[in-house]
Amino acid sequence: MTDLSLYSVQAILILDGSGNRVYANYYRPPHQPEEQLSVLSQSVKKQKEFEKQLFAKTHKHDSEILIFEDHLVLYKEYLDVTLYLIGSIEENEMVLQLAFTAFKDSLDLILNSGIDKKNIQEHYDTVLLAIDETIDHGVILETDPAAIASRVTKPPVNEPQISLDLDKGLLGAWGFAKSRLQEKLQQGI
């Protein structure tokens, strides 16, 4: 009954304030034969239905943990998004709680102005990286939020376009200043 498998997380979801998907990943162990995979990981239609029902159960009920359709679900509702972590019903609740806290707190760290829908969508790339550093194909990879956040890179900054023609630059500036000065002087007169 107790399974020593490392695949303890079945899905990570982020739903918005009306139950629509912001992010969803139903984990499937790679290289596993098709028939051993759960139904949920295979059909998008079933997933959406599952999310709809789950959202109805959890929206405005602040209970943090529940069992839903033979899954253990941990969740946290924010202003306009809800974070979910879905695990197997036999998994240790505290282990999942640890993973969920890591997921939640690392998002908190990387999203400077707090967890909300707009912020998640604006920094979708870093959110994706943070989740990827927390859970890999359903295996809990790291549980320390700071360790996760430290492995998430910020988006690259645009390298400024510097023109290296120094001579032309100085002369140009001089010409420009001269013409402006002349203009001013003429206007003043």
């Binding site: 320390d144 700071a146 430290s150 910020k154």
Partner: peptide, 13 residues
């Protein structure tokens, strides 16, 4: 050589 602004705790995971 920590890259960002965070100081990770070792969880020995």
């Amino acid at each position: 050589n920590v890259v960002g602004d965070y100081y990770p705790n070792s969880t020995f995971i």
